[in-house]
Structure formats: structure tokens, C-alpha cells
């Protein structure tokens, strides 16, 4: 008897983990909270509550390439990113923070959070240098672990999001809502 390959069957190599199989929001929250206390200040807490991001937002992120490939993205209002940068630098902050200072400091926060997220994922993986700007698009809505928090009352989104589109037959893509 002859059978027809309809494309429904999948080889083992066709499967890959999505981020929610590997890490949960509580772990991301714990990593972010530790980073905030150490980098931003001992009394700085992240409140796990959603907030409306303003129109003028800035993202910083690092890419993770390994058994799971994607990005760890921080997104917040531009003014909050500047406040975060000043808090990070504390007494070492220059009187006037320029855009490069903010990009550098906000990127470093993503680097620290991303490095610790990477450590919680299966390895070996490589970590990119931090980038700042418009966040990469979410290419597979099923491959996202997103945490919404408030810092000093301002919304910050922390998204661990896959870089690869869904496999054929799985969830369709849509654009990242925070970018």
C-alpha cells in the first residue's frame, strides 16, 4: 500500500522547545528582582503589576543563541529608561545624561538580566552584546515569556522571546505589541 506524505508528520528534528517549556515568569521575575536590587538600589522593588507603556518607549535587549534562540528584552518609557540609568550610576552619574549614557546603562541592565536568564536555559548558549532601540518583533507568540512590572510606579516589560517563526502547522505569528 502506498502512503502520501501530507506534511502532517514531524521528524524529531522538527521539534524545538518554546521558552515556556524552559522558564516561567516566576524565574524571570526572580532574576529581574535580583538584578534591580544589585544594580539599581537595595530598596528598589519591582511590583508584578501590568501598566500601560507610554507612546515614547525604548527597549534594550541581548540575544541568546543556543538550544533555544531568542532575545531577552526590556521595554519601558524613554523617561523611565533615563531614570533607571541615573539610578544605576548613582553618585557616578554625570550631571547631564546624554542618549549614549542611557543606551549604555539601559543596555547593561538587559545584559545582566539576559545573562542570568541564559544561565537558567539549557546550554551551551552564546550571549550577544546588548542592543538598544526598537525591540525585535515577536515571531512566535507561543515562544514568549513576558513579565510586566512596575518600577517606581512606571511600567517595565521584560520579555523572553524566541527569534524563530513557528513551525508549520503551529501558532501564527503576529507583531510584538510592545515595539
Amino acid at each position: 500500500m502506498t502512503t502520501t506524505d501530507t506534511g502532517e508528520r514531524r521528524r524529531a528534528s522538527d521539534t524545538r522547545p518554546v521558552i515556556t517549556d524552559l522558564i516561567d515568569e516566576a524565574t524571570v521575575e526572580s532574576i529581574a528582582a535580583e538584578a534591580w536590587v544589585a544594580l539599581v538600589g537595595e530598596d528598589e522593588v519591582l511590583v508584578p503589576l501590568p501598566g500601560d507603556l507610554p507612546a515614547d518607549i525604548l527597549s534594550s535587549w541581548v540575544d541568546v543563541v543556543g538550544p533555544w534562540t531568542g532575545s531577552v528584552v526590556l521595554t519601558t518609557g524613554r523617561a523611565t529608561a533615563e531614570e533607571l540609568s541615573r539610578a544605576l550610576l548613582r553618585e557616578h552619574a554625570p550631571e547631564v545624561l546624554d542618549d549614549e549614557d542611557v543606551a549604555d546603562a539601559f543596555g547593561e541592565i538587559a545584559n545582566v538580566v539576559g545573562g542570568n536568564v541564559k544561565a537558567a536555559l539549557p546550554g551551551p548558549s552564546a550571549l550577544s552584546l546588548p542592543q538598544v532601540g526598537n525591540a525585535p518583533l515577536v515571531r512566535n507568540q507561543a515562544d514568549v515569556c513576558r513579565l510586566d512590572v512596575l518600577w517606581r510606579g512606571e511600567p517595565v516589560a521584560i520579555s523572553v522571546q524566541g527569534a524563530l517563526p513557528p513551525l508549520p502547522g503551529s501558532t501564527p505569528t503576529r507583531k510584538n505589541e510592545v515595539s
Partner: peptide, 11 residues
Amino acid sequence: DSRAMRRIVTG
């Protein structure tokens, strides 16, 4: 490579 981190560690 982070200017912010250099400032912090230097401090």
C-alpha cells in the same frame, strides 16, 4: 565595554 559598569567598578 559598558561605560556605566566601568564607572561603577571604578567607583
